[in-house]
Structures are given as C-alpha cells and as structure tokens.
C-alpha cells in the first residue's frame, strides 16, 4: 500500500511525536505522583475543614472531562496573569488531573489496609508528618505499584488530548502526516500501534517489577 510507504518515509516525524508523548507522559506522571502523595497526605489531617475541602476539589476534578480541563488550564491561567506555552499548559493539566486520581487511588488502598500499624505507631508516640511518612505511606505506596501502571496508561491516553492545544505529540504528528500527504489510514493506524506498544511496555514493566518484588519476599 502506498500510504504505508509514505508513513515510513515520514517516520522521523512520527518518531519525534512518539518521543514527545513519552516524555510528556513521563514528566506528568512523576509530577502527578508527587502531587497525589502530597494531596493524600494532606487529606489525613485532623482539620475537618481542610480535609473536606480537599476531597471536594479532588471529587470535582474527577467529574471533569480531561479535554475540558485542558482548555481551562490553557485559557484560564493567563487570566490569573500566568502566561505559559502550550506544552507547559499540557503537562500542568495532565499532572494536576491525574494527581487528583492518584490521591483517590491512594485513599482506596489506605482504606483497604489494616490499621494496626497506624494504631501501634500512635501508641509509640508518632503523630503528624512523621506518622504519615514513616508508618502510613510506605505500605500504601507499595500496594499502589500495580495501579500506578494503570494510571500511567491513562496518562498516555489522555496525552493525546493535548493535540487540541497544538502540543506536537504522537497524534499531532500522525495528523500532520495525514493532512500533508492524505494518507489517513496508514498514519493513524501507525499512531494507534505505537500507543499500543507504549501501553504494552508499561504493562510489561509493571509485571516485571511485581515479579521481582514477589521473588524477594
């Protein structure tokens, strides 16, 4: 097929898009993870008002479509006097959005784990930040590893939405090739296959980490 040949000729464009998707996803995932852990740790506070309002924000974010959130960040930040380029806006949007999801995910794990260690920690005089850092977080984070993989797949998929604010990621590259040479089938199928490859890699990576963890136990 002619389209395949054209896409192969333009492979460097596609490859650049793939690399951009990769590092946008990776950096957003790192920031989201930090944000998620911090948010979750803050929600453990005894200050009811702070805890309630944090969960309100987290629940609210989880009810917003990512594409809309992306527009809100891109058009909204300038009205607060913060001018960012589209790439930064995209990474910020991905990080904050998925940070909220990760906080919720950590809460679910925390609720499913036994509280014994926490009670024992309190009895030994741990409280506040030290209790959270030393006693509460370690088992929660350990149990979160497999789900972090799922979240990374979600971030990869949501990164395609950044095409709407003209971030030059994989879907953008495929659309460029499609628009220039009119080979929609080959270029989008190539993009889909590359997304598949990315997601399979993440899933495989999680499996390897889990197996290694299992073997060490």
């Amino acid at each position: 097929m002619n389209g395949v040949a054209v896409v192969w000729e333009q492979r460097s464009l596609l490859f650049d898009g793939l690399l951009n998707t990769l590092w946008i996803t990776a950096s957003a995932m790192v920031v989201a993870a930090v944000l998620g852990v911090v948010l979750f740790a803050l929600t453990l506070t005894r200050l009811t008002l702070l805890r309630r309002s944090l969960w309100l924000v987290i629940d609210l974010l989880r009810c917003v479509p990512f594409m809309l959130f992306c527009y809100l960040i891109y058009y909204g930040l300038p009205s607060f006097g913060i001018v960012v380029n589209n790439l930064t806006a995209g990474i910020v949007a991905l990080s904050v959005y998925h940070g909220a999801y990760l906080a919720e995910l950590l809460r679910g794990i925390h609720e499913s784990l036994p509280r014994d260690a926490e009670d024992a920690g309190r009895a030994f005089g741990f409280h506040g930040a030290r209790l959270v850092m030393r006693i509460v977080l370690p088992p929660v984070l350990l149990a979160a590893v497999p789900m972090l993989g799922n979240q990374a797949v979600q971030v990869i998929k949501d990164s395609a939405f950044l095409v709407i604010i003209a971030v030059e990621e994989l879907t953008y590259a495929a659309d460029e090739i499609q628009a220039t040479y009119y080979v929609p089938f080959a270029s989008f199928v190539a993009a889909v296959l590359l997304y598949w490859l990315l997601c399979l890699t993440v899933e495989g990576g999680v499996r390897i980490v889990l197996n290694a963890a299992e073997a060490r136990r």
């Binding site: 499609q178 089938f185 889909v192 598949w196």
Partner: peptide, 23 residues
C-alpha cells in the same frame, strides 16, 4: 480488545472519520 483499550479516543475518532472514506 487490547489494542482498543490502549488507543486514545482522539486518535481513534480521527482514524474512524478520516480513514474509513479511503476504504
């Protein structure tokens, strides 16, 4: 199913809308 689960909706909708006419 594995392929579809890994495909972003944005990419899929572009594929469906622009690629089907070429077929």
């Amino acid at each position: 199913v594995s392929l579809l689960r890994a495909t972003p909706s944005v990419t899929l909708v572009l594929l469906v809308y622009f690629a089907l006419p070429t077929l």
